[in-house]
């Protein structure tokens, strides 16, 4: 019994030291090194989202859920939380869609977090008309955003853990 306990303790010490060393050493490294991370394509349009980015990251599903009842049942057609508008801004320039390729905006994050949404069984994943022809787009997409649209940011594992809560 005593021998077993000692072995266990020793093992524990070894594990803890390795973990601590690894942690200390990884300070300058990207977080969750080696683990896949979701790709978040920059929105083609607009400087910011309809709410602060932090808020949207965690609460976009509630916002959509509330808005869809207002629209379908009451007929309120405000644009702010409309799914069509999300798609107008967030559709990828490459696929023209928010959910056609695995890196598209409404796919990448969700597959990372094992979230399955059925919205696109019914809702078109593409904006009305081509992205370039969209009237709001012509007016708002400065060259800067066009360029920025192709850059990608990754979200840290911590951020994702926050969202998944």
């Amino acid at each position: 019994m005593a021998v077993k306990l000692k072995q266990l303790l020793a093992l524990g010490v070894v594990v803890l030291t390795t973990a601590a060393l690894a942690w200390a050493g990884s300070d300058a490294q990207p977080k969750a090194k080696g683990a896949p991370q979701p790709v978040i394509t920059k929105a083609v349009k607009g400087e910011q989202c309809v709410e602060p980015t932090e808020f949207m990251r965690r609460n976009h599903m509630d916002v959509l859920d509330g808005h869809r009842d207002k629209t379908v049942i009451e007929g309120i057609r405000t644009k702010k939380y409309s799914l069509k508008e999300c798609i107008n801004c967030h559709a990828s320039e490459k696929t023209g869609s928010v959910a056609a390729a695995k890196d598209d905006f409404c796919i990448s994050c969700h597959s990372y977090a094992s979230v399955k949404i059925d919205c696109f069984e019914c809702h078109s994943t593409k904006p009305k008309g081509s992205i370039a022809m969209h009237p709001l787009n012509a007016e708002t997409a400065h060259l800067k955003h066009k360029l920025a649209a192709n850059t990608r940011t990754t979200v840290s594992a911590e951020d994702m853990a926050g969202v998944a809560k």
Binding site: G75, S97, E121, S124, K128
Partner: peptide, 25 residues
């Protein structure tokens, strides 16, 4: 049947649901 993203952006519709004339809501 699955409509495979052929829907109009203004008219979502999809598999497993009943639908009918909406008077073009």
């Amino acid at each position: 049947e699955s409509l495979n993203d052929t829907q109009k952006p203004d008219v979502p519709r999809g598999i497993g649901c009943v639908e009918s004339c909406t008077f073009c809501v």
